[in-house]
Design a protein around this nucleic acid. Sequence first.
DNA 1: ACGAACTAGTCAATAGCTGAACTATTTCCC
DNA 2: GGGAAATAGTTCAGCTATTGACTAGTTCGT
Lengths: 177, 177
Amino acid sequence: MSGSERPDLDFWSFVALANRRLAEEYGFGHQLATEVLLTLNRASDLVTYDLEAAVHRPRGRSWSAFRLLFVVWLAGPLEPSGAARLTGMSRAAVSNLAKGLVGDGLLARTPDERDGRSVRLSLTAAGQAEMVDVFREHNEREAGWTAVLTEAEQRILVMLLDKLITGHREFEARNRR
Amino acid sequence: MSGSERPDLDFWSFVALANRRLAEEYGFGHQLATEVLLTLNRASDLVTYDLEAAVHRPRGRSWSAFRLLFVVWLAGPLEPSGAARLTGMSRAAVSNLAKGLVGDGLLARTPDERDGRSVRLSLTAAGQAEMVDVFREHNEREAGWTAVLTEAEQRILVMLLDKLITGHREFEARNRR
DNA sequence: ACGAACTAGTCAATAGCTGAACTATTTCCC
DNA sequence: GGGAAATAGTTCAGCTATTGACTAGTTCGT
């Protein structure tokens, strides 16, 4: 039975199969954890891929470039290290991306007056205009994704994900001392 | 006020700030959708990065390589295209990864008897042993992440993410006709 | 049974990310 | 005040994954 064909396996039946085999054949103890994280990653990948392919690639922009522009747009002039923190990218990635976006005239890099090592990233007028424009489309498509959940469900989802992130960070901090 | 410094901004206060500005200054209508998807991506990135850095990189294995081995391990001998579907990667990515893993002796590639174009990927004995071993550690760390949620909360989370994925796929299918 | 259309897998070129080394500035401390 | 340690940002080398073109094999229609 184990070597048989499974031509019609999709993601969900795979999760079910994995659950069963991990528990019954191998005796691993945390199947629900695996299921949660498998599903979490799948959902994130699908949404991200869809938004990038539908909204950003057609305009010649990468997903990462959008994320960087997004935080600079909304969090005002920002140091590269701050942008890296908010987006979750490395400082090197921010530096490389910013180089391209400055070249395209969307981003300005002005030296910090108080700290000669530092630099502030801000949107140019063109960058501001592009973000207002592109985010309209982005936001509509986001709404298309979340529309299958009620508002209450969406709030619960945010709350649970928040708990996952925050709770684990506290756990880490406690164990690192 | 808009050009002032925000040195202590973290992810959560950024989300709050973004929410406020998108609604009040720009009048976008779907802030909750943005919040849901921002949080979803953040959670997925954090978990994935943590598991890769803590469990897989130290053993010289990439996140993608683990994902491929994982589906081949549990879904039995599998065609590359099936593995691509289950992992969400491109067929080319599977092909490239498989090349390396065959070289490392973890994966076997046997030609399909019925279809001369096709190929079956399966774990070698070494690959099987490595998966049992590495998944023990992986699963423990997964459990460390989800432990901050009760079992009921974990089930709700899976259910909501499931609804997000499945509901949207149906929406897409309906609109594509 | 033959050719057209389709499908599976691989290859080549490219883009993007990471970690590590490097430069320039600032802060700390004696 | 002066030198050591710390910090901000950039650059570079290496790696990974993706897209698109290509090859080989299969299926379907006539």
